[in-house]
């Protein structure tokens, strides 16, 4: 589903290299976790994959199926099935959540050559999806993420994922700023989306999210590379011993 080879990314401002030859392959229907200490390049990886300005790919490839992600605009990546759940969801005053979601969904469907949703069809769809994430009508009417609590913002990200039904989902520290109940709700939303043809890359600092979203594979990232790959037990090892041991081993 996602195949990253020898990826190098640097910040346009200052030119500092953050990702330094990263290889990562996620198979269809799999859940992979990427863990690593602060500053290891986890968020940069998610931005580079989704096409954020300011992150320059200097070498390497990132293929999603047969789509060359790095060759196309962010909106085309999304239409091809890539979704990034933001660590810090952006507030958009003046645009209601409903309008935002419908615009995004219909834009993607148009790009895919499929018919758009009418207002009535969309309303039905959104109500179903929102109910499972405990998102009420008021949250849908309000401007995108404006005045939302941390938990509401993250649930809103998962709602977008549920509505857009991407093939490849990247969750960038979705657990940050969440209490246990909110995390369970978010994890439940993600688990409900797990499918044969949908893959997940879960970026997190902590094991605790992985208690709820069980990964098939765990990668440890440090200094812009994957330094160790293993099963779920690797996350437990990090939880118990921290990153220091692994980093020392590799060094």
């Amino acid at each position: 589903m996602l195949k990253i080879e020898n990826l190098h990314v640097r910040l346009e401002e200052g030119g500092k290299e953050i990702i330094k030859g990263l290889d990562l392959t996620v198979g269809a229907g799999e859940v992979h976790a990427v863990m690593g200490p602060n500053g290891s390049g986890k968020s940069t990886l998610s931005y580079a994959l989704s096409g954020r300005d300011g992150y320059e790919v200097t070498a390497g490839t990132a293929m999603m199926g047969d789509v060359d992600l790095l060759a196309i605009d962010p909106e085309a990546r999304a239409a091809a099935g890539l979704f990034l759940a933001f660590q810090y969801p952006v507030e958009i005053p003046g645009v209601s959540n409903m309008v935002f979601l419908r615009t995004a969904l219909n834009a993607q469907r148009k790009a895919q050559g499929r018919p758009g949703y009418s207002s009535a069809q969309f309303l039905k769809l959104i109500r179903e999806k929102a109910a499972t994430l405990d998102i009420d009508a008021d949250m849908l009417k309000r401007a995108v993420n404006v005045g939302f609590s941390g938990g509401e913002k993250k649930r809103n990200e998962i709602l977008q994922m549920a509505v857009l039904e991407p093939m490849m989902c990247i969750l960038d520290e979705t657990d940050s700023g969440l209490d246990v109940d909110a995390m369970k709700l978010v994890a439940h939303g993600v688990n409900a989306l797990r499918a044969q043809d949908r893959s997940f890359l879960v970026i997190t600092h902590y094991q605790r999210l992985l208690d709820h979203i069980k990964p098939d594979v765990v990668h440890i990232m440090a200094d812009g590379r994957i330094i160790r790959t293993g099963g779920p037990e690797l996350a437990l090892e990090v939880e118990n011993n921290g990153y220091a041991d692994i980093l020392r081993e590799v060094a």
Partner: peptide, 26 residues
């Protein structure tokens, strides 16, 4: 707002449509 623009694009909204949406919001 560049951040809002990127957020919209990351959800599949083409650049020009995203700009228009933000102008209307303004």
């Amino acid at each position: 707002d560049e951040q809002a623009l990127y957020y919209l694009r990351s959800r599949g909204v083409p650049l020009v449509e995203a700009q228009d949406l933000l102008v209307l919001a303004f």
